[in-house]
Amino acid sequence: MEKEKNGFAFYAHIYKKILIQDLKSKMSYRADFIISTIGMLFTNVAGFITFWLIFQNFPQISGWTYHEMLFLYGFSMLALTPVQCFFDNNWNLSRAIHSGDFIKYCFRPINLFFYYMSEVFDIKGLGQFAFGIGTLAYSWNKLGLPLSFRNIAGLIIGVLSASLFMIALMNFASALHFWIVGATSVMILIFKFKDYARYPITIFNKFFQFVFSFIIPIGFMTYYPSLFILHQERISILTYLTPVFGIVFVYLSYLFWMKGARQYSGTGS
């Protein structure tokens, strides 16, 4: 069966093939795989312990209870899984560009961005996904939220749209490598935003609520989409706009990344 060269099925097929190769090579470093997965779990548990410690001393944070905060934390972990699993190769872009290896991606008859990102699937993200589900289920139960179709659908759509913001930011940050040296520090800075996403944006004053919604879109990574389930009375227009903004933002980051990639001229080696 001749598959169309730019259809979805064609790309899914290629992704599967590359993914299997990647997993095979990872499995040959089994100890690294196990230790990295445990390390990832450490970071997730640490966030949990931090909340636990804070709430040992304080009953609530500006109206937010322990379990509500855990709900946001669980939500944010789920929303950060896609960027961790599917777009982790952004971290290797600097090396690929400066060593000249990047040129190989430019010569393939498939989408350059897709090919580059497909090369790495980060399994560590799955541990985070599992821990996020666990945290969310625990707080969901404690808060007595109904397990309705509306909430489940809202959760899936909310997590998927929230995940787009971190993906877009990381694409923007890594694409800077095409123009400047030392962009890794920008990536590290932006990657830290994921730690800030777990806090309700209402703790900030009006000015910073605006900044963290429209200039640095931290609010969309957890707070706005999670309101749909957590606090129906507080749902804002931004909750419904999360998917729209997310798609536009990712598309812009894709264009920016590709613009950088197209003007890449190799290192001559």
Binding site: Y29, A31, D32, I34, I35, S36, T37, I38, G39, M40, F42, T43, A46, I49, T50
Partner: peptide, 18 residues
């Protein structure tokens, strides 16, 4: 002893940080 740098380092950062 391990083949892992990232994993060992992140565990250290978490333990020391906390």
């Amino acid at each position: 002893y391990t083949q892992s740098i990232w994993g060992v380092n992140i565990m250290k950062e978490i333990v020391v940080g906390l």
